[in-house]
């Protein structure tokens, strides 16, 4: 299969890769760029473990083609902290024990950050519906909701 050359921006840095026309953005991130923070839980857009943003829009990277990243601005979990300073969401997840196995955590953090950028003060219900596409099997979501609300409160105050 003929490969495609793609120029893009990932976590603020220019990036280039080649991929086949049928290769997903998730496969490109994980297998070609070494960005394994996005996880493949299903490959069909049902679990949200591969969540990233493309031009600010939250997507399942398993449902986006690598070729679609041309000239786009992509953010992944690897770009969420500012150097060694964790994002308030990341810190809140640790402090509120909002993860157990941690496999869904990157996707949920990316999704929660995307929500708070649009809606800095969501109700619990808004938050639960926004995160309904991100499956977590360990926590029952309780501590995740609490952690996101704590981070949101902190970010509003900052």
């Amino acid at each position: 299969m003929k490969t495609i050359h793609v120029s893009t921006t990932i976590n603020g840095d220019p990036a280039e890769f080649i991929c086949t026309p049928d290769e997903t953005l998730l496969d490109v991130l994980r297998n070609r760029l070494g960005l394994t923070g996005a996880k493949e839980g299903c490959g069909t857009g049902d679990c949200g473990a591969c969540s990233v943003t493309v031009n600010g829009r939250l997507v399942c990277s398993c449902l986006v083609l690598g070729a679609e990243a041309q000239d786009a601005d992509i953010s992944t979990i690897e770009g969420m902290a500012d150097g060694d300073t964790l994002h308030p969401l990341q810190r809140a997840f640790i402090e509120h024990a909002a993860l157990q196995c941690g496999i869904c955590t990157p996707g949920i953090l990316v999704a929660a950050k995307a929500l708070l950028e649009k809606n800095p003060d969501p109700t619990d219900e808004e938050l639960r519906y926004w995160l309904a596409g991100n499956l977590c099997r360990c926590t029952g979501y309780d501590k995740i909701i609490r952690a996101v609300q704590a981070a949101a409160a902190e970010m509003r105050g900052a």
Binding site: T36, M80, Q90, G102
Partner: peptide, 14 residues
């Protein structure tokens, strides 16, 4: 915790 919130933790497929 930090490994898991930054995407650095290494799982089976990583």
């Amino acid at each position: 915790g930090v490994d898991k919130v930054t995407g650095r933790a290494m799982y089976g497929a990583d």
